[in-house]
Nucleic acid binder design. Structure first.
Lengths: 353, 353
DNA sequence: GTTAGCACTCTCGCCTGTTGAGTGCTAACT
DNA sequence: AGTTAGCACTCAACAGGCGAGAGTGCTAAC
């Protein structure tokens, strides 16, 4: 059977309506929407055809129809008109990214928040997959009599600092000497290439401050580990409660415990195409636990090599047009921002060579 | 009417039971708990007395009884036996605080998490009220060709760093000169005492790098503002869903939007007595929005002058004995930890004089 | 002072009938 | 051949009625 224009129009009407109301829709309602140009009986026949073709489902005999996953896929591919965001929303996003922050971490938190605020769904932003963070610079700064500040700059552009207690009041020159030594060993290397031998050398070279040295080395290795660890930022978890299909304590709790699983979020991010916006509807999701949701994701690039991704998780009857244009807009801003930071930033030194 | 021993025992039984089950309890059930030493009729008479005295309430004729707010207050003051935490729980807390972190921020996040994990209620940790953060040290560190790292150490012991773009490649000596100048003006002063005049002087003194200087000064003032801003850390919001009285979407949503209001959380923290654990049951809460909950709070001290507070929010039929000993234990550990950090820490230099 | 007994109350779950939205099919109409 | 009116049918949702069960208060006897 062919999908004539009229069937198409009816299908679009049903999906558009269901996305908003979450209620099954019947033939009479549709007839009314068309000013009764057709009788409900005619619509009924068309709907029966659409059901036979797999685009519509009934929850029970004599209920109205709702779109199937196949219908959503068709809608997204062929029917949907990606409408731009409202001026207000576009302005809001622009404003958010104008408050410049130099830290990727902050930017991702902000991105997740923006996505969830505007879409009213749950949003995540997953940090890039880094497995070889390289140390660019290590530095010790005296703070007061008892503490020094250890600063580690990595090639991800992230700076991490920690207060470390010093055993006695070392003068600045001595601290500089230690910094130098640390740099000599760590600079330009990822931690896994710094073997135990090096640790030993360092420790031996400063035997009297062995303990202090240990704490420095530990702190540096902690920093690198923390950087290598992938992060997930999540916002709008509670939006699930506003979605009728999930406004049920049991389902909501399930959702929360689902979203707590970081591994799942990584899988979700990794299932994203390298470019543009990916849409996974229901069963299309590679992750079983997500098969009752739709997930829309997109990748952002930190530099020419490193990618992370952001996503929105919502019901299958998601407002696809809006979410697609939203995510497109936001990723664009985020990437622009990162590129701007990127000029001369430690992150991409190597790319510039 | 007097509260005889028997009435007391019955009241305690009712409260203990209701805290666990959240179900109204009847005379027959109580009689059984006492191995039928007394008939249900006798218990019934006693319960009628207790109701008359305002300790018990009925939701409707022929329902069992539940404790009134007055009963909880009496329970907390007179009946309750503060039982120690289980060995497991005590060990868990100890372990948490052994992973030493030098940052107050991290410690408060950790504290909120621990409180909510063990109590299964919602926990908050409110940062201290600081309205005059003093800058101890400002420092500029070259990171690479295009960025410098600005480090600000405040008297709250918090170190804040930011990457700032530099207009051209300044050498280290020049950066040191700028650091020195910044220190000269900012060190030991709170920002509000650094008048416009100072800004101008600084800007004039380095006319050619005016823009760079502006961004440094802005960044410093942002840091101080951020430190002055009071923070709330919250954990276990979703625990509300496990409490029968609130496992209703509408109530849960109300609760969530309530807890989002930072002002309310500050008020809550400020309603805490200076020492020991404060218990606010239902109507006793100074904040209207909290009158259907019980809130248990305690203050921790950052040093001899500065206090913050932590709290647990739950239903009126809260497990008071457990929560009280939990909060007591945790605040103790937190304070100990802060005191340990405090030795020689920038935070308390002035106290040592 | 304690207890057995009894009438009474109220919630809750279950069943039932009704209503209304919606369908599918058939036969008539254009 | 496509469209439509008409009609019988289905099913969820809602309301009302009913019985069971838990619990009470009161009275009279122990």
């Amino acid at each position: 059977m062919l999908l004539g224009d009229r069937k198409l129009a009816i299908l679009r009407t049903i999906i558009d309506d269901y996305i908003v109301t979450a209620e099954p829709i019947g033939s009479r309602t549709i007839a009314k929407k068309y000013n009764n140009e057709l009788s409900s009986a005619t619509i009924r026949n068309e709907m029966a055809d659409l059901e036979e073709m797999g685009f519509l489902r009934q929850l029970h005999t004599s209920s109205g129809r709702i779109p199937s996953d196949k219908a959503y896929r068709f809608y997204v591919d062929k029917l949907m008109q990606v409408n731009a965001l409202s001026q207000n929303e576009a302005d809001y996003i622009k404003e958010v990214y104008e408050k410049k922050s130099a830290q990727l971490e902050d930017l991702l938190m902000l991105t997740a928040k923006t996505l969830s605020d505007i879409s009213n769904y749950t949003a995540i932003a997953v940090g890039p997959k880094l497995d070889n963070v390289v140390i660019k610079n290590v530095r010790l700064i005296p703070v007061d009599d008892n503490f020094v500040l250890l600063i580690v700059v990595t090639d991800t552009g992230i700076v991490k600092d920690m207060l470390i207690r010093k055993p006695y009041d070392m003068d600045e020159a001595y601290l500089d000497k230690i910094s130098e030594k640390l740099n000599y060993y760590f600079k330009g290397r990822s931690l896994d290439r710094v073997g135990d031998a090096v640790y030993d050398t360092m420790k031996d070279g400063l035997a009297k401050d062995r303990e202090f040295f240990n704490s420095l080395v530990d702190a540096i290795s902690e920093t690198v580990d923390a950087q290598n660890e992938r992060k997930v930022y999540m916002e709008g978890l509670n939006n699930i409660l506003d979605i009728p299909e999930y406004s049920d304590i049991v389902k909501a709790k399930e959702f929360f415990s689902l979203m707590k699983k970081k591994e799942l979020m990584f899988d979700l991010a990794d299932g994203t195409a390298e470019e543009g916006v990916s849409i996974h509807i229901g069963d299309e999701n590679p992750i079983d636990e997500m098969k009752s949701f739709s997930v829309i994701t997109a990748t952002y690039c930190v530099n020419r090599k490193i990618y992370g991704s952001v996503g929105i998780i919502g019901p299958k009857r998601m407002n696809y047009p809006k979410v697609v244009s939203l995510i497109d807009n936001v990723v664009d801003k985020l990437t622009q921002h990162l590129i701007a930071l990127d000029e001369g930033h430690p992150l991409t030194d190597e790319n510039k060579k």
